[in-house]
């Protein structure tokens, strides 16, 4: 596995190669968003469009019984700014 074979020398290359593509973003506070990446900076501030946020709702009563039943809600936003310090992970679409 030669990392240079994938054209990535530094982690931000992965983000640069994902511009105009749909990316999955995992955020602090159990938030997840997916959208088209328009811009980013060194803080990992992001501009996404056509965004779908997935909201995890854990029922505290059920969670107490040790079962992790999580209800999922979704909402859509046309355009979104994500502050970089909340970002945990960004995953670009699969490379082919």
């Amino acid at each position: 596995m030669d990392p240079s074979a994938s054209g990535i020398q530094e982690p931000f290359d992965l983000i640069r190669l994902s511009l105009s593509e749909r990316v999955f973003v995992k955020l602090r506070g159990d938030r997840e968003v997916a959208g088209i990446l328009h811009a980013y900076d060194g803080h990992m501030n992001l501009i996404l469009s056509d965004v779908e946020e997935t909201i995890m709702i854990v029922d505290p009563e059920v969670a107490e019984q040790g079962q992790s039943v999580v209800n999922v809600a979704k909402r859509k936003m046309d355009m979104l700014f994500v502050r970089g310090d909340g970002v945990i992970l960004v995953s670009p679409p699969a490379r082919t």
Partner: peptide, 11 residues
Amino acid sequence: RYGDAFIRGNN
């Protein structure tokens, strides 16, 4: 599972 993943270093 992710084909590629960027993880922000502060985490």
